[in-house]
Write a protein that binds this DNA or RNA. Structure first.
Lengths: 151, 151
DNA sequence: TATTGTTATACTCTATAACTATA
DNA sequence: TATAGTTATAGAGTATAACAATA
């Protein structure tokens, strides 16, 4: 038997992984919609939840997007009661985007749903199975980082 | 030691999985852009590549979207030379969306890049490691299908 | 009457460029 | 002069609703 596995085995693993991507994304989008958030907006509230109040400039850099886009995202989050624009303590050009109590509550609820999902996905797996899954995923993460870095 | 694992272990596995989602999506988007396609448009060409020419109505149902949206996607694919609108052989209301030779060539190239990615991600894994990764992913797929079905 | 695809309209996310207020 | 955030404008993707042509 040759030392290289047939391609079909690896391709099947990639297809499985892509199916997980599709399903996980669908589940996330659905869960976010119930909380009144979109994927783009939750990235903002996530940054505010960890890290606290923040200028729009800093948000734009952390998100890897433009200042204009952040204006739109914060507009939407402000209109739906997730954040407020406060004056920056020292720089009168800047705004301090801050989570409202409602926004903070939703983020806390999201964290608990996150743990719940982890239990639902992995609760039935034994310790050894979970460890080998983690090892495989870590391998994939390392490979993908390499591919994206050396683009 | 209690029979239930601490939550933190499972949450870490989920975070790993979410990181794979983010990285794989970034890699796909980048690869598609090089081929002149977006994610929404490649779903259309994928359906045409497998399955052959197709009415817009059938595309809308397969994509789970509206007829209006398919009009826009096919407009874009037509303008960039991936597909043509042909008259339907028997139903004069309908159009037969068909891959051009260029579109078919790009899809073939995509398939070969798919195999290449599978080799890059999994080539260094032994048979046993790959099998246990597959088992874990299959478990996750089954769980996610259950969650999405019973929404 | 039902179906296929279109136009009309609107909302979200993204991007560039020009501009205002402040530093 | 440089920076923070805005308005102006544009394009992709999604959705509903009204409508034309055909079945």
């Amino acid at each position: 038997m040759p030392s290289t596995e047939p391609d079909s085995t690896r391709t099947r693993s990639l297809d499985l992984l892509l199916e997980v991507v599709v399903l996980l994304q669908a589940d996330m989008t659905q869960a976010l919609a119930k909380l009144g958030l979109s994927e783009a907006r939750v990235r903002v509230t996530w940054l505010l939840h960890h890290g606290g109040p923040c200028t729009q400039r800093a948000l734009a850099e952390a998100l890897g997007t433009t200042a204009r886009n952040v204006t739109g995202l914060v507009d939407g989050l402000e209109a739906t009661g997730f954040v407020t624009r406060e004056p920056h303590p020292t720089d009168r050009r800047a705004t301090h985007v801050t989570l409202t109590p409602h926004g903070a509550g939703v983020m806390a609820r999201m964290a608990s749903e996150h743990e719940q999902l982890a239990d639902q996905l992995f609760g039935a797996l034994g310790r050894a199975d979970l460890a080998s899954l983690d090892a495989g995923l870590e391998h994939v993460v390392a490979r993908l980082r390499g591919l994206l870095g050396a683009s």
